[in-house]
Design a binder for these strands. Structure first.
Lengths: 155, 155
DNA sequence: ATCGATGCAAAGTTTTTGCAATGCT
DNA sequence: AGCATTGCAAAAACTTTGCATCGAT
C-alpha cells in the first residue's frame, strides 16, 4: 500500500530534519495511534507488544512535539492520543463514558467568540467536551440518585 | 459572617439527608475548594494541613457525589476541583499552562448545536478548553521551535 | 452506644529517570 | 564510529485500600 510508505517517509523526514532517527518502535507507535484512535499509552503498548512501555511514553511525547499526534484528557484516567490528522471534537458522556465525535467545524463560532473576548486561540482538535450522551440524557428523568450530579444552571 | 454559617448549615443538612456526618474535615476541605478555585487534591491538602491526604481524596469524592464540588482535567497532571457554584469555562494555555476563565454563557450556542445535532447535553461547568492564551498567541510568530506544536486547519 | 469518619501504613497505578546495551546514520 | 534510542530496573508521583481508633449523633 503506497499510503503507508508515504506516511513512513514523512515520519522519517520529520525525524531527520531534527537530527533524530527513524526506528521501528517509532513507526509502530505512530501506526498504533492512527489505528486505535484516542488510545491511552497502555492500550498502545498492548497493541505494539514488542515495544517497551517506557519507549511508548517517550515516543508519544516526541511525536507530540513533532506535531504528529495529540493528546486529550477524556476522563479521570490516562490521557488518550490520536493522530494529528484525526480532527474532531470528542463528546464524552460522564454518565456512561461513551465517547462520540463531531466535526471541528461546530466550534468555529465559539473559537471566534473566544478570540474576540479573551484573545484565546482555541485548539479545537485537542478538545474533549463532557456532558450526557443522547442515551443517558433520555434516561435522566428516571433517576435522581445519590451518585448522580445533575443541575443545569437556570440560564 | 452570616454567609459562612449558611454554607455550613447547607453542608450539614445535605450530609444529614444521606445519613452522613458533619465533620470539621469536610467543612475545611469544602472551604479550601471554594477559596483556592481549581485546586488539585495536593494543593487542597497543603491548604488544610491538619487534614490527611487520604481524607482529602475521600472528601472530594463525597462532595462531588453530593453535587457540591466538581472536578476538571486542566492538563496532564492531577484533576482540579472547584465549588459547584463557581461556574465558568476554563481556558487552558497549553504553551504556558495559564488558566483563564470565561462565563459559561459563551457556550450557549455550542450547547444548542450539540443538542440538535448529536443529542448531547453539554455540561458547561465541567469544562476545560485548550489552546493558546493571548500572551502566547502573540509570541507565536517569533517562534518556530522544535517543541511547539502548531498548525491550525485550513478552515 | 452506635456506626460513620479519620489517620496511618501499606499496596496499587501510572509515569519518569538513570544507565548500560543496542542500532541508526 | 559516533551518538541517539531502547530496555530494564528503580524511583517518583498519584491514588486507593485495610484496619484500628476516634467522634458525631
Amino acid at each position: 500500500m503506497a499510503k503507508v510508505d508515504v506516511e513512513q517517509v514523512r515520519l522519517r523526514d520529520t525525524l531527520h530534519d531534527k537530527g533524530l532517527r527513524m526506528t521501528e518502535q517509532r513507526r509502530l507507535v505512530l501506526n498504533a495511534v492512527r489505528a486505535l484512535e484516542h488510545a491511552t499509552p497502555e492500550q498502545i503498548c498492548r497493541e505494539v507488544a514488542s515495544v517497551n512501555i517506557t519507549t511508548v511514553y517517550r515516543t508519544l511525547e516526541l511525536l507530540e512535539r513533532l506535531g504528529l499526534v495529540r493528546h486529550t484528557h477524556l476522563g479521570h484516567g490516562a490521557p488518550t492520543y490520536s493522530a494529528q490528522e484525526h480532527r474532531h471534537v470528542h463528546l464524552v458522556c460522564h454518565r456512561c463514558g461513551h465517547v462520540d465525535e463531531v466535526p471541528v467545524r461546530q466550534l468555529a463560532e465559539l473559537a471566534g467568540t473566544l478570540r474576540a473576548t479573551a484573545g484565546f486561540e482555541l485548539d479545537a482538535s485537542h478538545l474533549a467536551l463532557s456532558g450526557r450522551c443522547a442515551g443517558c440524557a433520555d434516561s435522566v428523568s428516571a433517576h435522581s440518585t445519590y451518585s448522580v450530579v445533575d443541575d443545569q444552571e437556570p440560564s
